[in-house]
């Protein structure tokens, strides 16, 4: 029989190389300035393009400019939650210590972008639909997603034992991932006031390139900014964990000396 590691062990071994805090801080420290600079650069192009240089919609007028914020926030809310589920699975299956920290630091940022998705949707809905809110399937499932993000952020911080909190949070994140297909397909499964997907259709996108390109630019810019914020928070959390370990060691030394 071969001595090669099993298929399940191989990704775990390569991922655990990044569990070393020193290596993670070194690599992420090199990546972060590039991530932040590219986010700033792409948004510096995308936001003025969306706000001033893209054409108004023939039906919605200037209000269509809210789409350049609302759609990226919705994608980040869902994509970020998929990332949370992946990190939670890694934490549960391979006990990857950075996956726990990443999930813990991801959820407040995910909750914030989901709140921004709901707020911009409401601000877009009022002039277009004549109402700030309806209990249709898309809006309600995104509200559930917001509560899942908030629930995860609260649950991982609710236990004295951080490992137990992380495990409970990971289970919640994985169960909550069942809501993602409901959000995505709610506009097809039910009759909703919210419009069906325009961009991620199987055939061609329904958007004209004058609207599609600034939308994609804003989406890339906000995704890079989201990644930079999460990475900055994970770096801070790794350093705080090291600080706690050093303080505990110093306290133990002082106790032994005393």
């Amino acid at each position: 029989m071969s001595n090669a590691p099993s298929l399940a062990a191989r990704p775990a071994a390569s991922l655990h190389r990044f569990a070393n805090p020193g290596r993670f801080l070194r690599l992420s420290g090199r990546l972060l300035p590039w991530l932040a600079a590219s986010a700033g650069l792409v948004l510096a192009v995308g936001l003025p393009w969306a706000l001033w240089f893209s054409p108004p919609d023939w039906q919605q007028g200037e209000t269509v400019r809210i789409m350049y914020l609302h759609v990226p926030m919705a994608w980040l809310a869902m994509g970020g939650y998929a990332g949370l589920a992946v990190a939670s699975a890694m934490a549960l299956v391979w006990r990857h210590p950075l996956a726990d920290l990443a999930a813990r630091e991801l959820s407040p940022v995910g909750a914030a972008v989901t709140a921004l998705c709901l707020a911009t949707g409401s601000l877009w809905g009022k002039p277009m639909w004549g109402t700030w809110w309806v209990w249709d399937a898309r809006l309600t499932s995104v509200l559930v997603l917001f509560f899942l993000w908030l629930g995860h952020a609260a649950l991982v911080r609710a236990f004295d034992d951080p490992e137990r909190g992380a495990r409970m949070g990971a289970i919640l994140a994985l169960v909550g991932a069942l809501n993602l297909p409901v959000v995505k397909f709610s506009v097809e499964w039910w009759n909703t006031l919210h419009q069906p997907a325009s961009l991620t259709r199987v055939n061609a996108p329904a958007l004209h390139v004058d609207i599609l390109y600034p939308l994609l630019t804003c989406a890339v810019g906000f995704t890079l900014a989201f990644a930079a914020v999460v990475l900055l928070r994970v770096r801070a959390a790794v350093m705080e964990r090291r600080i706690r370990a050093l303080q505990m060691a110093a306290a133990r030394r002082a106790e032994t000396d005393g």
């Binding site: 209000t63 601000l123 900014a225 914020v229 900055l232």
Partner: peptide
Amino acid sequence: HWWHVAISYALVLGGFAALTGTA
């Protein structure tokens, strides 16, 4: 319509600025 657009941009940019600043 422009009021709604302006408030949306202020909320999102302010939100990201706050997230980045605190981090």
